[in-house]
Design a protein around this nucleic acid. Structure first.
Lengths: 147, 147
DNA sequence: CTGAAGTATATTGCATACAATTCAATTGAG
DNA sequence: CTCAATTGAATTGTATGCAATATACTTCAG
């Protein structure tokens, strides 16, 4: 192996490991904040979508969250068990399952309203740097997604 | 809820979602490259550490990878089953388990040597931007880890 | 020396991720 | 119209993450 290639196989030099670790630590920060709402982070993401658009189907939700039905089906069943959403088969096309917020699900939004600011404060980074970080992540995602 | 707070509860504006999605897509890119080596991404991270330091214990590995024994113990058992590492209790302190590379584990490094460059190329981003992204992730991790 | 406190790993339980497969429903080419 | 191809969800199986707990071992105060 060349010295150059050798040199790249070092944990601390790997962008992906940094991204991977930062992402997990951020989710951990959310975990504390979400505990009073009895939501996990992926469940919170699903609720974010539904708070914007109170009804959509599994496929549409999956496209927004970049997750497939293997992940979403059990997650949505848990949200249903908590009384936050309901799942109903479409009359027009029985393959499609519509997800919509219950009143309880809508009400939960108020309890979540402080979370974005709380996370921003915990990050301790200036807003400009966070926005730049977000843009780079979005670009990277896009590049890898179109391969 | 204030209009300002309302405005933050939008999926597409959340840094964490961008980080979360980019991280998962990057791991997906690794998955293809790692398939011939029969390694998952977290297993590859563990091997990266071991390729630098062929013997260390579970606690030390956990500190480097930011993972606990609940994740590492089964992962290391899988690496052991593949014949890449061996796990032995310390004689001096029976609580400690030493992990070390087998010859087969050492040999696998050659097959991994092309991966960092391949990932860099797939990202399609200039090196400078990737380095900046890495630095921001490292800083964010550090901030959240010291709370 | 001895029991309490601390430490390193393992186990358990739950919730993702995601590939692969299945199944029912729908669509579309001929 | 008809059957093969496609589609949307669900299911299955594997591998993380991680909190909580258990266990065995070590250390240390008295």
């Amino acid at each position: 192996m060349s010295a150059e290639k050798e040199d790249y196989l070092v944990l601390e030099k790997q962008l992906c490991f940094s991204l991977y670790s930062a992402s997990h630590r951020l989710v951990r920060s959310y975990r504390q904040l979400l505990e009073p709402l009895d939501l996990t982070y992926p469940q919170y993401l699903a609720m974010l979508v539904l708070w914007q658009q109170s009804e959509l189907n599994v496929k549409e939700l999956g496209e927004k969250l970049h997750l497939d039905s293997g992940t979403l089906t059990p997650l949505l069943k848990r949200l249903e068990n908590k009384g936050l959403v309901s799942r109903t088969r479409s009359q027009l096309d029985e393959r499609v399952v519509h997800i919509h917020l219950t009143e309880q699900g809508k009400a939960l939004k108020n309890q979540a309203s402080h979370i974005p600011v709380a996370i921003f404060q915990q990050s301790g980074l200036p807003l400009a740097q966070l926005l730049e970080l977000k843009q780079s992540c979005d670009l990277l995602f896009q590049q890898l997604d179109t391969l």
